[in-house]
Amino acid sequence: MLDFLVGRFNQILFSGWQHFSLVVQCLILATILAVIIAALVYRSKALISAANSVSAVGLTIPSFALIGLLIAPFGFGVLPAVIVVAFFATLPILRNAVVGLSGINPATVEAARGIGMSRFRTLMQVELPMAWPVILAGVRVSAQMVMGVAAVAAYALGPGLGGFIFSGLSRLGGANSLESVVTGVVGVIILALILDLLLIGLGRLTIPRGIRV
């Protein structure tokens, strides 16, 4: 095991970094997308329930099935992996962003409008900061989930640690096959924990002290 780790240290680091960076970039994209969508829908009950249905249905679709569907038009490589990871990353954040924005006390919003803040300004300076803890909780859920999704995405020859799992599987019984799979699995767990810690730290830095729990 140790030989395996030392021998492929650079490859492991590189794959780990690729995995991490795929997930983080998709998360950033997903957060922006989710917040924009939530900001567009949160004032209408019908749109809220539509958005909730979309995220519920989307989360029900197995990631492996979606990868299969995307291989058909996009072939193998980075693109289907990015689409799948970003898709699944968006859904929990969207759900939480809608809940966070629509859960704000109307009196607070009214107060903001009452002192002459524009709608956009109210959203940026009052509503989003107040909903941010809920949104960030969604980001954490997303992060943990898409770490695993990114591993499955390696089936479509996407980047990252999933490659170790699939290559171990294909050489089953061969030299270092078990080591390869263990590296993939443990690597993903470690990355998930690191990212979660980073997100907790981000929460500490960005959640206003007045609404911290």
Partner: peptide, 17 residues
């Protein structure tokens, strides 16, 4: 919770070993 962070595909393959 930590166990849940393990990728499903990894778990499936590991247990098969």
């Amino acid at each position: 919770n930590i166990g849940q962070a393990a990728p499903a595909i990894g778990l499936v393959v590991l247990l098969a070993f």
